[in-house]
């Protein structure tokens, strides 16, 4: 591919900025924190000030430091869970869609079962039986979360694989005698890239929610700071009712911001896959400059190609645009 055809809409740029900011926070957060998150030597229940940007807890800990330090565990666990879940859904989805037959029946049944079981209660049951020392282990928690989050992706990937299975290039690869796993993972998988990316964003988003929720109800080790444990302590000390908003608002806003960033990026991928959504997302000014009517109510929503977005070869376009 010569040029990257990622839609440059303000939504996607905003999403990239937000996600980028939190990635930096994950890496550098613990070094930037002014105090140790466990340090209880400050006066309790201070409102936000120059010394304590987000105030202090009722145990006298600095909330700003907790927020900075907490970013790492939250995002690392979500990333582990998201990556593992996406990998699982890729393997299951492609195998089911490409191999077909009994393999497909079995794997589809498996993913449908996992879709039907409500995820959070299952997570809680598994997690409550984990030994206490593995509850502080990011890898274990991430794996458990990924177990409940892969099924949706597998379903989407299976559907797309089935539509690719009989394309000419796959047929050609089969005829020249490529091995089955090679066709699956080197011919089919690269063409699923937009869907895989969207599935990754979606599962990371889900995993943040799941991890924070587990921490919030006290099922992860309280010795590891993450945004959920902050909310756990805030709730446990009745912060919402006693008006200490600065205790639970910072972690909550951070979670919501990361989530929004990921969702906005996902919009970009959606618009990449379905060009009609691209035109629908344009602002009035952009529509005018592209010569589109100010309001589009009826008929086909036009497919927008700006100069930089025009597909370089028809072959690539026909592979990626079909849904």
């Amino acid at each position: 591919m010569k040029s990257i055809r990622f839609p440059r809409s303000p939504k996607v740029i905003l999403g990239l900025c937000i996600v980028g900011f939190f990635v930096l926070l994950t890496i550098f957060g613990p070094y930037l924190a002014p105090y140790s998150p466990d340090n209880t030597s400050f006066a309790p229940n201070l409102t936000p000030s120059a010394h304590h940007w987000f105030g202090t807890t009722s145990l006298g800990q600095d909330i700003f430091s907790q927020t900075l330090v907490g970013a790492r565990a939250t995002i690392v666990v979500a990333l582990i869970a998201g990556l593992v879940a996406t990998l699982l859904s890729m393997v299951v989805g492609i195998a089911a869609g490409y191999v077909g037959g009994f393999t497909d029946d079995g794997l589809s049944m498996l993913s449908n079962v996992f879709l039907a079981i409500p995820g959070l209660p299952l997570l809680i049951v598994i997690d409550s039986y984990l030994p206490v020392n593995s509850r502080s282990n990011s890898l274990v928690i991430g794996l458990v979360i990924s177990l409940t989050g892969w099924a949706w992706g597998a379903r989407v990937i299976r559907a797309q694989t089935m539509s690719l299975r009989n394309r000419d290039f796959v047929e050609a690869a089969r005829i020249i005698g490529e091995k089955r796993y090679r066709v699956m993972f080197f011919e089919v998988a690269p063409n699923l890239l937009p869907i895989l990316a969207s599935s990754l964003l979606f599962t990371v988003l889900y995993s943040i929610g799941a991890y924070v929720t587990l921490a919030y109800i006290g099922l992860t080790s309280t010795s590891v700071w993450n945004w959920g444990t902050m909310l756990f302590w805030a709730q446990g000390n009745n912060a919402p009712l006693s008006g200490e908003w600065y205790w639970f608002v910072p972690p909550g806003i951070c979670i919501a911001l990361v989530g929004t960033g990921l969702a906005l990026l996902n919009f970009g991928i959606d618009e990449f896959i379905n060009p009609r959504l691209r035109a629908a997302g344009l602002s009035a000014k952009q529509r005018r400059s592209l010569g589109l009517p100010r309001r589009q109510r009826l008929g086909l929503t036009p497919v927008v190609h700006s100069a930089s977005q025009r597909p370089s070869t028809p072959a690539i376009a026909s592979n990626t645009v079909s849904t």
């Binding site: 924070v212 909310l231 709730q235 909550g252 979670i255 919501a256 969702a263």
Partner: peptide
């Protein structure tokens, strides 16, 4: 749409906490 996205990304219990407050 962006507003709705933001609300979607907020954990249920956090929004509930803020509303309670």
């Amino acid at each position: 749409i962006p507003t709705a996205t933001f609300f979607q990304a907020i954990p249920y219990f956090f929004l509930a906490t803020v509303m309670l407050l």
